[in-house]
Amino acid sequence: MRIPRSPLASRAASAGRSIAAVLPWLGLALLTGCNESTMSTFEGHSDLTKSILDIYGTITWIDTALFILVQGVLIVAVIKFRATGKETELPEQVHGNLPMEIGWTIAPVLILMMIAIPTVSLIFDSQAQAKDGALIVNATGKQWWFQFGFPQYNFETANELHIPLGRQVDIRLQSDNVIHAFWAPQIAAKRDMIPGRVNHITFTADKIGEYLGQCAEYCQDSHALMKFRIEVESSEDFEKWAKAQATPQADTVDDSEGYKAFQGATCVACHAIDGTNAQGHIGPSLTHVGSRKRFAASVLEMNEANLKLWLKDPSAVKPGCKMPNLKLTDEQINTIVPFLQSLK
């Protein structure tokens, strides 16, 4: 669903849309290559990011015009009025000109109105309360990963957020440690996750695909490695995924070889696997960790080699990592890794 726009904003829209393809950003499009998943702020795939792009375009046009104007006058003046050294008289000593002063005080006011009006209307539109029926996601920033809770579906996951196409999403941003920021440029833009507060981002995605996100507020050592991904999928796929995530692991897990090793290595102190007695809440829930495409805040691809690397020494992957190096033996690692992968 699109956010309703003020008439002015929609007039700017057509101009805005085309600019993304043309102006200084042309180079950008060439550099980034178009259809891969990127962090580019110039591709909007939700109502929110699209309407931001409209204003972005308007301001870019205005700024470019003003820059050319100022630079043009400057360059012409430098060329035209350069001293030759042969002057015999001083230039005319002009001290000022009141009408001109008034002119260049008022002109910027008018120009700024062209920016301020759509800006203010979008501020109010985009911060309106989410509608009933919106998908609620509790996103919590941790050092250094993202926890995603789905209260309507009763499960929790990490670093990989699935959302349905066309349904409004209300992401509730929180933190219980330092400030982080949730930034998914192409569909959710950005807001901070601040301890002691709840912030909202509401948007409706309009294109199926995989989108990148990253923490944008400096949060110490592994701030650079605090990423996440958003998968926009059809409603059916989403429901299927949510249902699977909400299902606890079968009881059989409890007495598997892998689980015993997992328990023996004290992983349970920090990690939860629903359906077992692992109920730690310091690290990400591992309930369906095997189903994630990437792990450790999207830094590593989910495969055997990477899991081994991770368990060997987490801080070698992520500096300062809050998961300790548990000095596991190769044997332990070799039992735990397939177990983790089996948690689909």
Partner: peptide
């Protein structure tokens, strides 16, 4: 000084982009 006028204008104009909160949601801390 001429360089100042030129480059400061550029910086000031990108400041105006930040001044629009929706746009700043894409630019802040980038």
């Amino acid at each position: 000084s001429l360089g100042f006028v030129c480059m400061f204008t550029m910086g000031g104009l990108s400041g105006i982009m930040h001044a629009s909160p929706p746009v700043d949601l894409q630019q802040q801390d980038s």
